[in-house]
Structure formats: structure tokens, C-alpha cells
């Protein structure tokens, strides 16, 4: 493990040789891949901006997902999971009267979250390009049926 660089001096950690007997080494975890619902929730947070909290994120996710009805509990569970992964962060804002004097929990994307969302968007773009190549540009029309490959 690399030592901490202290610009103003200070101690640099020294590895104790006693600990290297049967040392189990874990590699750095790779960037987490996002499920489809996680991508929707992250996009919703981005869309909502400063007003990203449970109710608005849920409404945005329902809009983004199309006709599907989305459970509020599923949104909360996904927000918790994303926060545990370090992709978003949250804080409790001031209470408001229309919420019975209760606070909102606001969310925002962290840099890791932005990076993961961008990766997902690039993957989706590559998929779209491949589908257009196979099925033609007309696939985005609702009435179009993809032609079978002969």
C-alpha cells in the first residue's frame, strides 16, 4: 500500500514484517457496473438537480421508464444501494410544512457516480449504433418490426 504523501512533512507508514506471513492481498475493486434501474435512478437524480429527493426522483424515474409503474420502495432501496457504493451522497434538508414538518433527504451524484453513468450511456450508445446497423434507423419507430437475419 502506497504511503501517504504529506506536503508539510510528517510520518510515513512503515509496514511491519510480522504481518506479511500468510498475508491475504485483495485487489482494488473495479468500477461497479450499473443495473438498468440504477441507471434510471442516477439519470433521475441528474435531471432533478438540486430538487432531487424521494418524491421527485420517483416521478422522474417513472417518466424515464416509460409506461411502467415504479414502486417508491424500489427507488429507496436503489438509492441506498447507490449510496453504499459511493456513487451518490445524501443529506437531510430543512423540514417543510407540507411534509408534516419532516425533512427531505436530498441526493446528488458523486464523481464515481457520474463516471459510472457516463460509462453506461456510452455502452448504450454503442448498442444503439449496432442495432441501427442491423435493423436500420427505422427501429426507433413504434410500428417497426426488426427484420430477421437470413
Amino acid at each position: 500500500m502506497r504511503p501517504l504523501q504529506c506536503p508539510k512533512g510528517g510520518h510515513i507508514s512503515r509496514v511491519d514484517s510480522h504481518f506479511y506471513f500468510l498475508y491475504i492481498v485483495y485487489q482494488m475493486a473495479p468500477q461497479p457496473s450499473l443495473g438498468q434501474f440504477e441507471q434510471l435512478v442516477l439519470t433521475a437524480i441528474l435531471q432533478c438537480g438540486r430538487k432531487a429527493y424521494g418524491v421527485t426522483i420517483h416521478e422522474a424515474v417513472e417518466t424515464l421508464s416509460g409506461a411502467r409503474s415504479v414502486s417508491l420502495g424500489a427507488v429507496y432501496a436503489t438509492l441506498d444501494r447507490l449510496e453504499d457504493k459511493g456513487l451518490i451522497s445524501s443529506w437531510l434538508a430543512d423540514p417543510t410544512p407540507e411534509r408534516g414538518g419532516r425533512s427531505k433527504r436530498h441526493y446528488r451524484l458523486e464523481s464515481d457516480g457520474e463516471r459510472a453513468l457516463r460509462e453506461s450511456a456510452l455502452t448504450a450508445r454503442r448498442m444503439c449504433a449496432a442495432l441501427e446497423e442491423a435493423w436500420g434507423r427505422g427501429i426507433w419507430s413504434a410500428k417497426c418490426t426488426p427484420a430477421r437475419q437470413s
Partner: peptide, 13 residues
């Protein structure tokens, strides 16, 4: 741990 914001969201809706 979830009470404050979940109850607030349910109340708002």
C-alpha cells in the same frame, strides 16, 4: 434510520 424522509415523502404524496 429511514423514518424522517420516508414519512415526509409519503405525507407529501
Amino acid at each position: 434510520a429511514s423514518r424522517e424522509h420516508v414519512m415526509g415523502d409519503l405525507s407529501e404524496r
